[in-house]
């Protein structure tokens, strides 16, 4: 048989094969429909039980002892939905239920042995419902080979507000192809208050270099004024514009008037993201001396800066308002921005 003819037979073979596979999938789907139906009914039964048991705190040991592995999976699913829904007494009782029925233990096992996505799910569940022992397991997962699991474990620990060692956390999250992700922001903000000292130390430590933007951001949420010198120094002299901008944002959150020098410096920075944050910070802290410089920024070449400057001026009360009105009289792009801001803020 020639090459050409074999193409024909080959293609017939392939299409025949694919039709068979499709047929197989149809059969599987038909079966699945039945299974799904059962699953949905069982889930319904379980949720009815949960709703009643939680409310009256009256578990039915009979019912609970007859739960199997599939039921536990269903409970785990429902658990995350409930976690987003309720808190307080209900959640405490539900946690007890999960413990009693072995769902927590199953999750801890999954955390160690499951596939990647199962470990991630288990981490989430344990972050919401786990106990001390679970926290230990989560901490161990900071060394997981899958970066998503590490991140899930870190997030879970942050949500519980406990971690043995910030150093370990930073270490585990640095060595990864994690590019900057705001999830990391969330993680470190979660530790900002209780682990402020360590975060401040790590922000200057070489090991924290990949995560510096998040560490600096977290400091802004820590409420710690003793970090001001560090932030001011970063804002004024860090070679990386992202760090300078982050530091100014953090200073804005801390809201301490000592930030004045950093703000003044930032308002004349050569990089526009830094100028934007400086203008924001000036307004957030309420630095009157900055007003003339902010006024100048309304004529900045970069539109975002102009816009932010005008917004910031509008929060300086009388002084800012007067500045905007002065600017509005000119014949420049900045004047346009000023005019429109005045109009909007009316």
């Amino acid at each position: 048989m020639g090459l050409l003819e074999s193409l024909w037979w080959g293609s017939l073979l392939l299409s025949g094969l694919s039709i068979l596979i499709a047929g197989g999938l149809v059969a599987m789907r038909a079966v699945n429909v039945v299974i799904e139906g059962r699953r949905a009914r069982r889930r319904d039964e379980l949720t009815t039980y949960i709703v009643v048991a939680l409310d009256a705190d009256s578990p039915t040991p009979d019912f609970e002892s007859r739960l199997n592995g599939r039921d536990r999976d269903l409970l785990a699913e429902v658990a995350m939905e409930l976690f987003e829904m309720v808190k307080g007494g209900h959640l405490e009782r539900f946690t007890a239920l999960l413990k009693r029925t072995g769902v927590i233990d199953a999750a801890r096992r999954r955390l160690r042995q499951g596939k990647s996505f199962q470990r991630v799910r288990a981490a989430r569940l344990l972050g919401a419902y786990g106990d001390e022992a679970a926290a230990d397991d989560l901490f161990l997962r900071l060394r997981d080979r899958d970066v998503n699991v590490r991140l899930a474990a870190a997030t879970a620990l942050a949500d519980r507000g406990e971690v043995r060692s910030m150093w370990e956390l930073v270490h585990s999250l640095s060595y990864a192809a994690i590019r900057s992700t705001p999830r990391l922001r969330h993680v470190f903000r979660g530790f900002a208050v209780q682990h402020a000292d360590e975060i401040i130390a790590l922000a200057t430590d070489p090991i924290g270099r990949h995560l510096r933007p998040f560490l600096i951001d977290a400091i802004g949420h820590s409420g710690r004024f003793d970090a001001l010198p560090f932030l001011i120094d970063t804002a004024m002299s860090d070679p990386d514009k992202q760090m300078r901008a982050e530091a100014l944002a953090a200073l804005g959150r801390l809201g301490h008037p000592d930030a004045v020098d950093a703000v003044i410096g930032g308002l004349v920075d050569s990089e526009w993201p830094v100028r934007v944050q400086a203008a924001k910070c000036a307004a957030a802290v309420g630095i009157g001396e900055a007003v003339p410089l902010v006024e100048r920024l309304v004529e900045d070449p970069v539109w975002w800066v102009r816009h932010q400057a005008a917004e910031s001026l509008s929060s300086f009360g009388e002084v800012g308002h007067a500045a905007l009105e002065r600017l509005a009289l000119h014949n420049t792009p900045g004047a346009l921005v000023a005019q429109r801001t005045l109009f909007e803020k009316r």
Partner: peptide, 8 residues
């Protein structure tokens, strides 16, 4: 706001 306390 969710999560909320049913008793509340």
């Amino acid at each position: 706001v969710k999560p909320f306390m049913p008793d509340e």
